[in-house]
Each structure stands twice: as structure tokens, then as C-alpha cells.
Write a protein that binds this DNA or RNA. Structure first.
Lengths: 158, 158
DNA sequence: ATCCATTGGTTCAGAATTCAACTTCTTTAG
DNA sequence: CTAAAGAAGTTGAATTCTGAACCAATGGAT
């Protein structure tokens, strides 16, 4: 058995898979952003609307929302301020924990969500889902789910 | 045959695949960024170093570099200015086209690249490649390559 | 009761990003 | 040859993002 001397570089197959993932994630975010622009929303706006829409009473604690959308508290705080100014969301105090705040969907926010969601789904289909095919979908999930798991736990520690 | 009335929402399988892709791409970028921090580089810095390193004469036209790294000319211009100030890169005039500029790797840039690359590769392995397995790699590439293709052509048009 | 370490959230300053305007040079068409 | 259109890059202002410092409230320990 030889002693390992150098770096374990990526093989060609690994390279191209890696680049494909990289390229897709960037190009896709860009495309989705473009498709949301006519509605005056960013991807981040939209994701927050989704999270709140799917939550009990259309509200979420700031911390939980930050965790769910994988962004820092700081970034979320700014983001919510902007969305508050846009009338999509409001902050509300939390009674059980006087430090805490809820981000709450406004009627306007909910209406916006109902209007935009179909377009966004269509966009996700057109540029991603429908290009994969049923087998591609399963393959993708099977491959990525463990990676996501690894990274999520790593995040808590980090 | 029924008339299609509503939105073609995502199925559960589609949802989870979509979220997995989303989460992995965000968490992964974050993790890689963290792993590069000790070397004083960002992901964007690194990617530019890679592109220049692999190019003839360690140089690339600004436009080509912008295209290769999927960013706007403006963003690249700022980016290169920063890297120039950090001594990793320099601008050089192009003789065949007097409008044009090359971004050129400096010795320092090349040295940095040689030093950092092994760590970065290890990072990509640890947090992505090695979690996929050979079959996962192929599956991933097979699934994503057509998507990347679709998005790239869409980009030129859009 | 009283520390004190944690958690929840904001704020500020500095860095990065976007978007549109602009300059310069090149190419094409007449 | 010249005018107009297009391509290569930069710049500057406005926006967003990051990271650290901060304040207030909570939850244990003792």
C-alpha cells in the first residue's frame, strides 16, 4: 500500500457534477428572481411569505423564521423591516416571552401570496421540476437529502 | 377529459426534492465560505482564481470571466478592483481590442491558489462529493445537466 | 433572592451587490 | 468614408448583506 502524498483532487465525473450543481443553483435563483420581479417581490420576500402563509395564524417568531429561511437574525430583521414598509407583514409582540416578536402576515401580504404563488410554482416547474422527470426527482432527493442533513447539523455546531 | 382549472401545484415528492436542492445550495455555499475565511478569501475570490489559473497565460478577458463566473460586468469589475488591491490580480490592456482588458493572475495570486486549492477541494469533498457516493454523483449530473443547459440558453435570450 | 450565562432581537458600520448612466472603441451598413 | 448601432468596461448612487456590539428579558444555578 502506497503512502498518500498529495491532494485528493476531484475526478472528471465529480468535477462536472459539482459544477452542474453550482451552475444550476445560481442560474436558477437568478431566473426565479426575474420571474418574480413583475410582482415586485424578491426570492427572499417570497420565501418569507410562504413560511408565514403555512404557519398557524400566519405568524412566526423571528428566530424560527430566520432558522427556517436559513438566514442570520440580522439579515431577517432588515428584511422584515423592508416588508413591513411594503405593507406585507407586521411585527407583533409576544406575550409569553417579552423579548420575542412575531412576524405576522397582513391581509395585503396574504393577498399577494395568493396572487403570486401560482406564477412562482409555474416558474419552478418550467425551469426545474419539469426538466427532471419523475426519476430525476427521486434521484435528486435521494442524493441531496443526506447532504442537507449533514450541513444542517454542521451548522448548529459551527 | 377534464378541463384543467387550477394551478399545477408541486407534489410532495417534487416539493421535497426542490427544497433539498434549495437548502443544499444555500448551506453549502455558506459552509464553503466559512472554510475559505481563514485564508482571507471569499467564494467569489476563489472562483476567479480558479478560472484564471486554468486559463492560457493566467489571464482572461473581463467579459469572458464575467460569463464564466455568471456575474454581471459591473459586479466583476468591482470584484477585480478588490482583488487588485489585495494583490491577487492585475489588469492589463488588450492589444487586439483597445476597449478590452485582461484580468491577470499575479505571482501572489498564483501562490495563493496553490496554497488554498487543496483545502478547498477537501472542503468540497467533505461537505458534498463524499456524501453522494459514485451513484449519487452520476445521478446528480444526469439530472442537473439538462437543467443547467436550459437555464444557460434562457439566460442568453432573456 | 441574586448572579450569570443564554436567548431574542435590533442596530451600526463596513463591505458587497445592483442598476442605470456613461465613455471609448469596434463593426456594420449605406 | 461616415453615421449609427453595438460591445467592452467603468463608475456612482442606492440597496442589501455581514458581523460585531449591544440591550433587554429569561432561566438556571447557588
Amino acid at each position: 500500500m502506497e503512502t498518500e502524498t498529495g491532494t485528493n483532487w476531484l475526478t472528471d465525473e465529480e468535477q462536472r457534477a459539482w459544477r452542474a450543481h453550482l451552475d444550476v443553483s445560481r442560474l436558477l435563483m437568478h431566473q426565479l428572481e426575474r420571474d418574480l420581479q413583475p410582482f415586485g417581490l424578491t426570492n427572499n420576500d417570497y420565501e418569507i411569505l410562504v413560511n408565514l402563509s403555512e404557519s398557524e395564524d400566519h405568524r412566526m417568531r423571528m428566530s424560527d423564521l430566520a432558522a427556517a429561511t436559513l438566514q442570520s437574525k440580522s439579515r431577517l430583521s432588515h428584511q422584515i423591516t423592508r416588508m413591513e414598509n411594503a405593507g406585507l407583514v407586521r411585527r407583533e409582540n409576544c406575550e409569553s416571552d417579552r423579548r420575542g416578536l412575531y412576524a405576522v402576515l397582513t391581509d395585503r401580504g396574504w393577498e399577494t401570496m395568493r396572487e403570486v404563488a401560482p406564477h412562482h410554482v409555474a416558474s419552478v416547474r418550467q425551469h426545474f421540476i419539469d426538466l427532471l422527470g419523475a426519476s430525476g426527482i427521486d434521484a435528486l432527493y435521494g442524493s441531496l437529502a443526506p447532504v442537507a442533513e449533514h450541513l444542517r447539523t454542521r451548522r448548529k455546531i459551527g
